[in-house]
Nucleic acid binder design. Structure first.
Lengths: 147, 147
DNA sequence: TTTGTATTTAGACAAAATCTAAAATTTGAA
DNA sequence: TTCAAATTTTAGATTTTGTCTAAATACAAA
């Protein structure tokens, strides 16, 4: 399971002659520890708990650089941009009730059928987004209880 | 091939006791004639060519109503909301060079393999977005020419 | 034509993201 | 350890996208 790491980011920063700042480290650490798909604002708030004067510009600059460097991807759901530190190829599940976004492993789907487009497009990748109700929001089957 | 139509929208408007205004008609006509996936602003500009004082609020209100009524869908690509008058189930292709969004017929893919999620989610639908280069942006194979 | 109600408009407002110039920090080298 | 150069950060202004509001207007039924 590949994921954004401090170490990898540090290497990339050094390679490009960029600077390792505490703000950048805090953003990466937060993303690394994330179990969900945070918005820029969630990241901004989290980083400000550790570095109270971090500006939004820094958060956006860092996120944009991480995107370009291929260390996070951006997922748009319901008009909201979210950031995804999961570097393994994967799909997404979005709950229509609570809006949560879950990662779905590639092999939940099995191999996709070969796809031939008629319009001479060059297909390089594809995303699949499943929609419905997440476990928490799904109605549970009634359970019999012996009293 | 199902598509948003004036007639269907008029029927829905009457059914709900809403009013048929020239602005609404202009928005629907524009969407109907669209070969691409316009943004709210493109629609705003197009409608204002015919009705110069149409406000953004009217455009957004109408688009939101059309969405609720199931007569258009909203596609988010690259952080931009686009509107889709194609009512047939379909997928999308997005060009990474020019950003254009094309509809891909459902059967370009063939039947999808059965998908079993382990997390007790209830899957109701899914979207597939293919990414790559569109026909215009794809490098063409060299063609031999007899001189 | 009249009337009641829905709709439109212009502009205020809000949220998300980008840009700017000045101040501060990082880093490599002395 | 100190210095200098370059990058980065900050705060706030700005832009973009979308929503909300109150007053004016237009639709549609009688």
């Amino acid at each position: 399971m590949k994921r954004l790491t401090q170490q990898k980011v540090e290497t990339l920063i050094r390679e490009k002659g960029l600077k390792l700042t505490p703000q950048r480290q805090a953003i990466v650490e937060y993303l690394q520890g994330c179990t969900h798909h945070p918005t820029a604002d969630e990241i901004f708030i989290a980083v400000n708990e550790r570095f109270p004067l971090t500006s939004r510009a820094t958060v956006y600059n860092t996120l944009n650089w991480l995107k370009e460097a291929g260390q996070v991807s951006e997922v748009f759901e319901g008009g909201v941009a979210r950031f995804d530190p999961n570097l393994d190829p994967h799909y997404h599940f979005v709950c229509r009730a609570c809006g949560s976004v879950e990662d779905i492993d590639l092999d939940a789907f099995g191999p996709l059928p070969h796809c031939t487009l008629t319009g001479r497009q060059t297909v390089e990748s594809y995303d699949i987004t499943m929609r419905g109700l997440c476990a928490k929001c799904s109605p549970r089957p009634a359970v019999s209880v012996i009293l």
